[in-house]
């Protein structure tokens, strides 16, 4: 059976690219969400992993950022694997997300797709 992956990103281009990429690998079933709140509402489906963008309020004003969503996910499902995404090469942000329980921190660029594919394979 295909693994169920949630992608949470308010940037439709990146979300679509990532979703297409994972689809192509043939072993993942991908659902994308534009905000963290939408993703939280579907958590009962218990995805195998969540790929979560750090900034999530570019289209929906006041949407919670990835760090808050990550903390809420872990409140209900402490073992859920979350890979954090960010356009920011920022050590502090990376550290905070890892400290909050993310398993990986991936910078959004041209290499991120292969990197995420590798991490998902290892999980």
């Amino acid at each position: 059976m295909k693994k169920n992956i949630f992608v949470v990103d308010d940037d439709p281009m990146f979300a679509t690219l990532l979703s297409d990429y994972l689809d192509d690998l043939g072993i993942y079933q991908v659902t994308t969400f534009g905000t963290g709140e939408d993703c939280l509402a579907q958590l009962a489906e218990k995805p195998d992993a969540i790929i979560l963008d750090y900034y999530l309020d570019s289209t929906v004003a006041g949407a919670k950022n990835g760090l808050e969503i990550l903390q809420q996910i872990h409140k209900s499902y402490p073992d859920l694997k979350v890979i954090m995404l960010s356009a920011q090469e920022h050590y502090g942000v990376a550290l905070r997300t890892i400290a909050s329980g993310a398993v990986h921190y991936v910078i959004k660029d041209t290499a991120s797709f292969d990197e995420i594919g590798r991490y998902l394979g290892d999980l």
């Binding site: 940037d11 990146f14 570019s58 356009a87 920011q88 041209t110």
Partner: peptide, 13 residues
């Protein structure tokens, strides 16, 4: 800041 930040991945892609 937020607007410029979100653009970066798209530009790289």
């Amino acid at each position: 800041h937020r607007l410029v930040h979100t653009l970066k991945p798209q530009l790289k892609l």
